[in-house]
């Protein structure tokens, strides 16, 4: 076990992948000598050389478009997009080519491409550096979308994503890059839990009662950067006698709806949290799926705690935009008040 930051855990994951498979390439803007603006590719250039760790010209469509050709030639490109807001020049290549080539060739052409994107807000950045573009990709059949929330998940999921023959949009919660956690660097791919499985953590009140009665329980479904905030809200709620299950989705497409459903069947209330605007977002999808699958289990309407339906604001106002622990706690209260 090592204690690593998320940035470092990703770095180790990439190192393992480059070491284990000579067809793995890392490419993007400033991934070489600089080691990436978040240092995720630090040291990889000197260890694996400029043919495996490639500083590209400045062009996102170029990065992803050439990754398609490299993948057709049998390589496994891991592409870095420098920030969430800069993936859009590559959007056409991703949704029209990367996502569809397997289907277009009737299964003959695998697309083992990973697109790493630092995403989310809360770091006081200028425009285009705080976006949450996951819904665009989750809406696109043919892509897998994952969003780890911890160093150990980041390490495991980057390795699994690279090993997969499907394209993966790999979102990284940039405000958590320097969070530390335990990582098992020797873990074998074969021993890892499934890439697309959610993780449910149950937090019980501390008042001598093992668990609150179902009247006072709630599930909070979240992913990526909001997991930490959901945990904080959950801890505050347990102080008040509420049992909370925090479901970290980890994968956004396909979604592990089984885990969500199972949790809702235990708690009967659901709050969904994400930073992206609420309208037509993941929260809407999850609320719809839950009402289809286990409507009768719900004691209260599903609450969404999400980014506002507006362009991401200047950073001095982002506190009012983001789904903070306070807003999550309010939504928890709302589901309880409805019962």
């Amino acid at each position: 076990m090592l204690t690593l930051t998320m940035s470092r855990a990703l770095n180790e994951g990439l190192r393992c992948a480059l070491r284990d498979d000579p067809r793995v390439l890392v490419m993007g803007e400033d991934v070489g000598a600089l080691g990436g603006v978040f240092r995720v590719t630090d040291g990889l250039l000197s260890e694996f050389g400029p043919q495996r760790v490639i500083d590209t010209p400045l062009g996102e469509s170029g990065i992803i478009g050439t990754a398609v050709g490299l993948a057709m030639r049998g390589y496994r490109p891991v592409c870095e997009i420098q920030f969430d807001g800069f993936v859009f020049p590559a959007f056409d290549q991703i949704v029209s080519q990367v996502a569809k080539l397997r289907a277009r060739t009737e299964g003959r052409q695998p697309m083992p491409i990973v697109v790493r994107i630092p995403a989310g807000g809360g770091i006081g950045a200028v425009e285009h550096h705080s976006e949450s573009p996951e819904a665009y990709f989750a809406h696109t059949p043919g892509l897998r979308v994952v969003y780890p929330s911890s160093p150990s998940d980041a390490f495991r999921m980057i390795r699994q994503s690279i090993a997969l023959d499907d394209p993966v949009i790999f979102l990284e919660p940039k405000r958590c890059y320097w969070h530390k956690g335990e990582v098992e660097p020797e873990a074998e791919l074969a021993d890892m839990p499934p890439l697309l499985a959610a993780q449910t953590v149950r937090l019980s009140p501390q008042r001598g009662v093992a668990d609150g009665p179902p009247r006072y329980s709630v599930s909070i479904v979240c992913y990526g950067p909001t997991v930490e905030w959901a945990m904080r809200a959950a801890e505050a709620a347990t102080q008040q006698g509420v049992t909370v299950e925090v479901v970290d989705l980890r994968a956004l497409s396909p979604l592990d709806l089984g885990s969500v459903e199972a949790s809702v069947q235990r708690t009967h209330r659901l709050v969904v949290v994400h930073e992206a605007p609420g309208r037509v977002g993941l929260g809407a999808e999850i609320a719809a799926a839950v009402s289809e699958r286990c409507f009768a289990d719900l004691y209260a309407p599903v609450q969404r705690v999400v980014g506002l339906d507006i362009p991401y604001p200047p950073n001095r106002l982002e506190g009012a935009y983001l789904p903070t622990p306070e807003r999550i706690l309010d939504a928890v209260a709302m589901t309880l008040a409805a019962a």
């Binding site: 709620a237 006698g241 509420v242 209260a333 709302m334 309880l336």
Partner: peptide, 11 residues
């Protein structure tokens, strides 16, 4: 509302 809802949960 929040205080009432949460304090109800104390029970």
């Amino acid at each position: 509302v929040r205080a009432t809802a949460l304090s109800a949960a104390h029970g």
